[in-house]
Write a protein that binds this DNA or RNA. Structure first.
Lengths: 286, 286
DNA sequence: AGTATATTTGAAATTTTATTTTATGAAAGA
DNA sequence: TCTTTCATAAAATAAAATTTCAAATATACT
């Protein structure tokens, strides 16, 4: 069966290429989608100062079977849209509202991060990490959490992985690394001095580099060989309690990990199994 | 305007309380929702071995205005449904597929976590944390990341907050605390020995306790005064690379932070502003 | 069991809505 | 200025939704 969404996108997309009367209707629907789907073709024609015939023509122009299909597809979009808006928190907001807003915002960030992530870059990143003798994750402040998360994950599948937020420690380890290793620099802004310096050092020593930064040009991702982006999210959230950016970073790590895991499926499963046994051994003898 | 979803839920909910012919139709729609919304009332009546009249009666029985509204509400549900399924990663999966699956799963976890989180418990948690002289977050392994995240966030708004994954360190700090403080134990399973012991100690010293665990009964949340739950998510993900559980924990922390921030709006904004200035001061003189 | 009453049903009638046809008028090109 | 093309809405038609209604069935009561 046909899809149940995309109506609003179609309207927006085609808006300019339509004859005047159809354009008027498209605009009316885009401005009043909820109302529009509850109207009849005749009523919608009147409301938008055209006719029911024009409404039907519009539907055909969009490549749809008729007004019913348009309604259904707009309804589907509305379903989505309620989640696609950014909501900031206000003073003395109800608890349920806060739960809903924070959840909606974070979901939005994840979606955007998923959309932005380049398949090509991900593929390269997996190839490099997969063959690397060792991986060094580096991040400062909140981004260190993402580095630490990566370390925990990759250790489980027997990767030689380190995470640092101290540039001296990181530099010490990098000193003896080379083209067979990889440095992953994490910085939300992409301009954190320490991360910049570390990537410069890595470049100096011909170590492959991967960046995890927000989307857009920045010192960090210009330096890196491979760029992985997080959503550049609306970080208002009460003039920045900055919540979702770190979740976006973890999400990128998750995807990187899972991609690697899928590519090396058998070994991954084996390693995870051994990890689990080791942990339960520790627990038994506690 | 009316909602654009809930049709399938209504059908399921009412299924048993309907007269036979309407029941048949309800079943048919639940089994073939995509097809059903593209049929006419007459066609749907025939397909389900009843009549168009019965279809209309069904719509009225559900409290809807007519067949059109049912269609729209089912379309909205279908929009949701594609995302509400859990997808595990398979060997040599395409990169785009992995991105989509991981994103969908994580979104699902967030949604569920949002749904599960009790407004009442959240309110109590905010009250306790808000008045606490100091907050001690404790978690082992992956859960330590959530503790660390909480520490970073709450430090920004001038809370006296500590995070530990070493039970000896944590015990040392707790030794001198009392009813005016609060201990927050984080454990995905809710059965981590260290967290259990720490909460027992806290109880001994009459320190209020909050747990952040997966939904369901466990040692940790039975001990705690206030329970905050994360989704008990399908943690298959390739026999547990266990990705989304930590994101769910961060999500709970985010919500707790934002709730507190909203309750103490003015001070929070001031503190965040001062934090930002302090950090940019550091950067300028580097 | 037998009767009265209420419920459920689909066929047919009706109403509403969607869609097509068509005549008209406006704009672009020759 | 005259075609030609296109867009338009009114009117006609087709299709779909909804209501009505009489028959069938179930249920309650005696």
């Amino acid at each position: 069966m046909g899809a149940t969404n995309g109506g609003l996108i179609m309207l927006k997309e085609m808006e300019n290429r339509l004859p005047p009367s159809e354009q008027k209707i498209a605009q009316y629907i885009l401005e009043n989608p909820e109302e529009s789907i509850s109207l009849t073709a005749l009523a919608l024609g009147e409301k938008s100062q055209t006719s029911s015939a024009a409404v039907i023509r519009l539907c055909k122009s969009l490549g749809l079977s008729g007004f019913q299909e348009l309604k259904i597809r707009v309804a589907g979009d509305l379903q989505e849209r309620s989640r696609n808006e950014y909501h900031d928190i206000e003073p003395n907001e109800g608890f349920q509202t806060i739960i809903n807003k924070v959840t909606a915002n974070t979901i939005q960030t994840l979606k955007e991060t998923g959309d932005i992530l380049s398949e090509k870059c991900l593929e390269e990143a997996v190839r490099v990490v997969s063959h690397a003798k060792s991986c060094i994750f580096f991040g400062v402040g909140a981004s260190y959490l993402a580095a630490k998360d990566a370390e925990q994950k990759f250790l489980r599948i027997n990767k030689n992985v380190y995470s640092f937020s101290d540039i001296h420690q990181a530099a010490t380890v990098i000193a003896n690394k080379g083209p067979e290793d990889v440095v992953i620099g994490i910085s939300f802004s992409g301009n954190t001095e320490e991360v910049v310096k570390l990537l410069q050092l890595a470049k100096e020593k011909s170590i492959p580099t991967i960046s995890i930064t927000k989307y857009g040009s920045s010192k960090v991702n210009n330096l890196a060989d491979i760029q992985l982006y997080t959503s550049a999210a609306k970080e208002a959230m009460m003039r920045s309690g900055a919540t979702s950016s770190r979740i976006a970073q973890l999400h990128v790590i998750d995807i990187l990990f899972m991609s690697l895991a899928s590519a090396e499926y058998e070994e991954t499963v084996k390693h995870l199994e051994e990890t689990r046994e080791a942990i339960s051994f520790i627990k038994r003898n506690q």
